[in-house]
Amino acid sequence: MCVTDAEQVGTERPSSGVNNTKPWPMHCEFLQNQMGNPDKESALTGTSDRTRSGNSFPLESISEDAAVIDKKENPATFAPALRSGEWSDIGKRPYMEDTHVCIHDMAKKFGCSFLNEEAVSFYGVFDGHGGKGAAQFVRDHLPRVIVDDSDFPLELEKVVTRSFMETDAAFARSCTLETSLSSGTTALTAMIFGRSLLVANAGDCRAVLSRQGCAVEMSKDHRPSCTKERKRIEALGGFIDDEDYLNGLLGVTRAIGDWHLEGMKEMSERGGPLSAEPELRLMTLTKEDEFLIIGSDGIWDVFTSQNAIDFARRKLQEHNDVKICCKEIVEEAIKRGATDNLTVVLVSFHLEPPPPVVFQRPRFRRSISAEGLQNLKCLLEG
């Protein structure tokens, strides 16, 4: 599956580059060397023409789902009360390659300040393959790259897209210094700024929103079976084999890392068949939005999106503990036969548990006509 054009946020614009003036910790020195020049893009990033620029005004004014807001309700009166939990399990794999991150206030975490004092929360799930190096690298560095971007936090769409690409290029540099890190990872992040929710996805992790008990998929899985991804890959010289693997090697079409795999990526503006560019979905939260589930693909191997929302709602109604709920989702996935690594992050937007779903009875009684009844009888009798 892939995100349709209508679901993507932002338009193609040339990148304005990165202007980072804040000091970097020693372990991020190579990132500073790579991105320290504000006048030109790094040769590794190759994002100048491919970066999607966001709007230049605050995200609070943006909503792709404005039509769902009740006209009688002022959405500005809703303020999300964030609670988050997480749980991981190695599953039946010999190694644990999943990892995740939950940051309540990014500016406070990294010791920076900006004019708008509203907290920006950051949540991410990273599903590694071929080793855990890439997943851990992205977990440790991507949030800092985002915060140190000069356009943070008001132009989050542009910042997040650029940061995914820059982190990918930085990881390529790190692998040349330490080849043991060579690996790849899918990456799905969710950022909450006031009432704005921005989900960025590169790979087959998935984020699903519960809106009054209905599942709203905030991301689409980047797999070779996606027609749109197949066209993009073939245009760049890649191919999908008969078993639905990218270049016969990977079961995903977007990921950070994998620079060691021949023919997957190129250090050029054109890029290779395997892309680190995330697809974005942005919406304004309302009081009908209950919680967000972010899960690695092992979860979605045994849960449908709606099934996961139904299961989580029942558990939250029982005990209203988001961390225990994550643990129960993982345990249930194992009972259902999941074999992959399993990671779940759940972000609740309310302090109270989800309310019971009330189904309204139709105003008029429905009946079948005599003609319809006769037709049904004939059909049943053959």
Rank of each mutant, 00 (worst) to 15 (best):
R365F: 09
R361K: 12
V358L: 15
G337D: 07
T339H: 15
T343F: 00
L373P: 00
F359Y: 14
N307F: 14
S369M: 00
D340L: 06
V358W: 14
D340P: 04
L346C: 09
A308G: 10
L342T: 04
T339Q: 15
E352L: 08
Q374P: 00
V347K: 07
E318D: 13
N320D: 10
P353N: 05
V330I: 15
I299P: 03
V357Q: 12
F311W: 04
F311V: 05
P355S: 10
S367N: 06
E332D: 03
K335G: 03
A333N: 10
V322E: 10
C326H: 04
S305D: 11
G372Q: 01
F364I: 12
P355L: 13
K315T: 11
R366Q: 13
G298F: 11
S296N: 02
A338V: 02
V344Q: 05
I294V: 14
I324V: 14
S367R: 11
I309P: 08
E332L: 07
F311Y: 11
L351V: 11
V344H: 02
I329L: 05
G337P: 04
V302P: 01
V302Q: 09
S348P: 01
R314V: 09
I324T: 15
K327M: 09
G295C: 02
I324N: 13
G372I: 05
E328Q: 08
Q306R: 05
I299N: 06
L316K: 05
